[in-house]
Design a protein around this nucleic acid. Structure first.
Lengths: 184, 184
DNA sequence: AAGGTTTAAATGATATATAAATATTTAGTT
DNA sequence: AACTAAATATTTATATATCATTTAAACCTT
């Protein structure tokens, strides 16, 4: 059975519900590292250095945390933000409900791929090199999108669980071998 | 005969004639829940909570009642407004003449529709998905406009009577089946 | 060496389009 | 100058895109 040489979680996006409305102007005033321009976008942007993330905060009390390298770090970032808000006197009444919405990962199959051939032999594929150098492969189970590159490197996005990333990468590698697109 | 799964009247617009001129500044002073900014728009806006409506009142004594969920509620709203005006000392001499001008309804056909195909097979149709996701179908009898969506949901607007909504929805469903765009 | 190309996902406001009455101003056309 | 047409505002369902955020891959153009 083929084994991908390396898989890295590159980005985790999580949605958060606080179940209470927030005064974004107040938050912008009291917390540094925030950007808030409601004419441009309704969410306030809060950047953390550790874990390195950018979180969008909405007046509905919902948030979107992006940029963390693991589900754990996303949770850590959200807890840190809630703590910061409480420290500056913004009363957060409930514990945040956190849901991972998307995981982006990169992997290296360790073998070059003929994308022209792959596009011809695989289903659910899009490959337009003058538009984008990667082949876009939509996997139904797990439901993810894989960007395959000629170098043998790939990007997997759309996963809801870290486990799905590993399953998807194993699966795409098996399919590529079955179809004879790569052999090892 | 096909039956639409659900039809809801979403909005009724009615015009009203009182046959006497009105002092909108006086009304704005004496009634709460009113907005009046003649530089912006010549009509005064009066919002009712029950039935939930927004009514435009003009100095000509004409009004436009919007937002009610039935013809009956539109009449109820107008009567309530006339009563309110009389209560604050504004003498309304005649009974209001009320005419339903537009009824907006939504329905769910319960089956997905290929709009590309529908646009090709139907007449009096406009479909430009990058401008608007719905297909616009102009029915001559009853004279209504139907916005058809890929989900099988639709919006019917332009009807003058509630009955016309039901007729129009039945008719569009029959036409879609006749042309083989949907089958059930 | 930057920045643009593509993919996924959530957030919420606004825009797109439909019909209808009402009245006022402004813009554009004869 | 007289005329028409559109924008101003109200409501409502429907469903898309946009705005901004993050991240990797590799290829293109500045």
């Amino acid at each position: 059975m083929p084994k991908a040489k390396s898989i890295h979680i590159e980005n985790v996006v999580a949605s958060v519900t606080l179940n209470q409305r927030l005064d974004l102007n107040l938050i912008a005033e009291r917390l540094p590292n925030t950007e808030f321009d409601p004419d441009q976008f309704p969410g306030l942007v809060l950047r953390l250095e550790q874990p390195k993330t950018a979180t969008l905060i909405f007046n509905s009390g919902k948030m979107v945390c992006t940029g963390s390298k693991s589900e754990k770090d996303a949770v850590k970032a959200v807890k840190k933000i809630v703590e910061s808000l409480r420290e500056v006197g913004i009363d957060i009444k409930n514990e945040p409900i956190i849901q991972v919405q998307n995981i982006v990962a990169s992997a290296n199959l360790g073998i070059e791929i003929n994308l022209e051939e792959a596009a011809f032999l695989l289903e659910n594929t899009m490959y337009e090199p003058e538009q984008f150098p990667g082949l876009i492969y939509r996997m139904r189970d797990p439901k993810v999108v894989i960007l395959l590159f000629g170098s043998g490197k790939l990007v997997c996005t759309g996963a809801k669980r870290e486990e799905d990333v590993y399953t998807a990468v194993d699966k795409v590698m098996e399919i590529l071998m079955e179809k004879g697109i790569i052999r090892e």
